[in-house]
């Protein structure tokens, strides 16, 4: 059974599901309780579950994240909202130095079943300090899991998996897509980490993305089909760590060409990792160098026209695919 829901509702469904299932699950964050959350993700939960399970925190990311880590170490399962991931820089010492390492330091005796969630990336004119894509930053550290769902169904299913995971999970939501709708599986539709989704099957070129850029790749694939008769496969990575190398490699073995797309800056990004994995594991199948499509190397602009110019476009993705096919760019 499936129902059409927004990305926002799907997230809320997942948290409600886990709040009901497990008494140790609590929500923490700025304005998530009485106010219902800046992005209304937790709207209504305070009334239903009360202040002991839906906790409003001070504006102190380092403080409440550290508190959540301590709670998790003692057996609670906190879900912490970062109002946006941009504010996690203040909490990054707690996340990287403690959350990611406690289990290791304790020889496996102490787990940190913590979820930190919030909107990631840009596209809604929030300017340079409020527009970051941090998947590569957090994906860099062993001990953290990093996921980035794009469909409402995955938003719910991966949140279920995140809450149940015994390790800290960096849950990067496609903030610009909170209002988008999609079919969402009812009940327990947990989606495993480390398994990419083939969003569109194709034979000529593989477009690889995660989060909001998957939608871009789907549109680029349509354009390629219509204008060039090219059949593009689109892979939604879903999780950055763990990373599904097999699906990626199998696809490129089939299509012989790949384009990696990310909103973040080109250097040291996820697309670079994708390109490296492909050349390591599918070298003999490649017909062209792997192309990367990334954000412009500038702090995110505020002006709409400049913001659009700074992020990957459907045209950039389609043209990168055309380069791998040795056909004319448009």
């Amino acid at each position: 059974m499936a129902e059409t829901k927004t990305y926002r509702e799907a997230l809320r469904d997942a948290m409600v599901h886990e709040l009901d299932r497990d008494e140790s699950v609590v929500l923490m964050g700025e304005d998530i309780g009485v106010y219902g959350g800046t992005h209304l993700i937790t709207d209504g939960l305070y009334d239903e579950y009360g202040p002991k399970r839906i906790m409003d925190t001070p504006i102190s990311e380092g403080g409440f994240t550290g508190a959540a880590i301590g709670m998790a170490m003692l057996g609670m399962r906190p879900i912490v909202e970062m109002m946006t991931w941009n504010f996690s820089f203040l909490a990054s010492d707690q996340i990287i130095q403690n959350a990611a390492k406690v289990r290791y330091f304790s020889g496996g005796q102490v787990e940190v079943p913590l979820v930190i969630r919030g909107p990631n990336g840009g596209g809604v004119q929030l300017s340079a300090q409020h527009t970051h894509s941090l998947e590569n930053l957090y994906g860099h550290f062993p001990g953290l899991k990093v996921v980035s769902p794009v469909t409402p169904n995955d938003a719910k299913g991966m949140m279920l998996t995140a809450v149940r995971d015994p390790n800290p999970v960096i849950f990067l939501e496609a903030g610009a897509l909170y209002g988008t709708k999609g079919e969402v599986g009812e009940g327990d539709n947990a989606v495993p980490f480390g398994k990419a989704r083939i969003a569109r099957e194709g034979t000529d070129v593989t477009l690889i993305a995660y989060g909001r850029q998957v939608s871009l790749c789907m549109r680029a694939a349509d354009a390629l089909e219509e204008e060039d008769g090219v059949s593009a496969e689109v892979i939604d990575l879903r999780s950055i760590r763990p990373f599904d190398e097999d699906t990626l490699v199998k696809s490129v073995e089939k299509t012989h060409r790949a384009v990696a797309v990310q909103e973040q800056w080109k250097w040291f990004g996820v697309a670079s990792e994708v390109a490296a994995i492909i050349q390591e594991q599918a070298f003999d199948y490649l017909d062209a160098p792997v192309q990367r499509v990334s954000g412009a190397e500038v702090p995110a602009p505020y002006a709409r026209n400049l913001e659009l110019a700074a992020f990957p476009s459907e045209k950039m993705v389609a043209n990168a695919a055309r380069r791998t096919l040795y056909i004319e760019e448009k």
């Binding site: 003999d284 199948y285 017909d287």
Partner: peptide, 13 residues
């Protein structure tokens, strides 16, 4: 002329 060609990996395969 000396057995060297520019060719993509899939071509060599």
């Amino acid at each position: 002329s000396n057995g060297q060609f520019r060719a993509s990996p899939i071509v060599r395969r």
